[in-house]
Design a protein around this nucleic acid. Structure first.
Length: 267
DNA sequence: ACCTAAACCTGGGCGC
DNA sequence: TGCGCCCAGGTTTAGG
């Protein structure tokens, strides 16, 4: 599942690959994945690619743009012939230069949407999203934690509180911080909040360094798998053991999402 | 207002 | 081996 490190990896590669390119043609093979009228992007030149949380924004030179969300199984891949005829290629964007961007998505949850004023779209989204873990202090985060009766895991997955954290990095971050995912957010001390924030930054930086987590569907904009799945601390480790104390990990569902933790090391 | 749960989809894994 | 069921989770939306 693309979370912040995966989306950022794609952003960097897209920026490198298509900045300055002019869109010549768009082929929408699956209408669910394009919101609105795809012909609106024809003739636009890409100025650059921005990101807010797990959202990508293609900025065109005329101030319009494209908002993209990959949801669970979305891929954005440049110039890979396999995707030309792949069964789940949903959108094909061809540039004047001959470069091609493929949007591929088995489950059809993701979308591309043209925005007449992309700067405004980014601003509107920014108002709805919380800060990314690097952009918030522990005191500011703690004051948000104190306002809710939800579990800490629920809260860090809430994009309006903290942007960019998904289930993989939430699980690993909570383990690294030694915090039980079932704890009420309001029960965290300032010190624990600081540990959690620094753990989340640490695991997400690791994710970025290793090219993201390709546990299931994720590949980068070059079609390559990441390696963070080789560094999972607890995520997905059913029948696995704690990396620290080697006791069996426990599994519970929190807010409908799989949660792995060590009863002994996470308090 | 605040919180939970269903809906959106498909392929893969599991049990029988 | 094969069938069918259940599950994965980001976000929105509907419901309690």
């Amino acid at each position: 599942m693309p979370e912040l490190p995966e989306v950022e990896t794609i952003r960097r590669q897209l920026n490198e690959g298509i900045a300055g390119e002019e869109i010549a043609q768009v082929e929408v093979r699956e209408g669910k994945n394009w919101v609105g009228d795809s012909s609106q992007v024809i003739g636009r030149k890409v100025a650059g690619i921005a990101r807010q949380g797990k959202y990508l924004f293609w900025r065109f030179e005329d101030g319009s743009g494209l908002q993209v969300h990959l949801k669970m199984t979305g891929r954005v891949v440049i110039n890979s012939t396999w995707y030309e005829t792949a069964p789940h290629t949903r959108v094909v964007i061809r540039f004047k230069s001959g470069k091609i961007v493929y949007y591929w998505d088995t489950r059809k949850f993701g979308y591309l949407r043209y925005e007449k004023r992309v700067g405004e779209a980014e601003e509107n989204l920014k108002k709805r999203l919380g800060p990314e873990p690097w952009k918030v202090g522990e005191k500011e985060l703690l004051s948000k934690l104190k306002k809710t009766s939800r579990t800490i895991k629920d809260v860090i997955l809430d994009q309006s509180i903290l942007a960019g954290v998904g289930n993989i990095y939430a699980n690993d971050g909570l383990w690294d911080a030694g915090i039980d995912p079932r704890r009420r957010a309001k029960s965290l001390t300032l010190r624990e909040c600081q540990q959690l924030l620094s753990a989340l930054k640490k695991v997400m930086e690791k994710g970025l360094m290793t090219g993201g987590a390709s546990d299931n569907s994720y590949v980068d904009a070059r079609g390559q798998k990441g390696k963070y799945q080789d560094h999972f601390l607890v995520y997905g480790k059913t029948k696995g053991v704690c990396p620290k104390c080697e006791r069996n990990l426990l599994y519970v569902k929190i807010g409908g999402r799989g949660s792995w933790y060590c009863e002994s090391c996470q308090k």
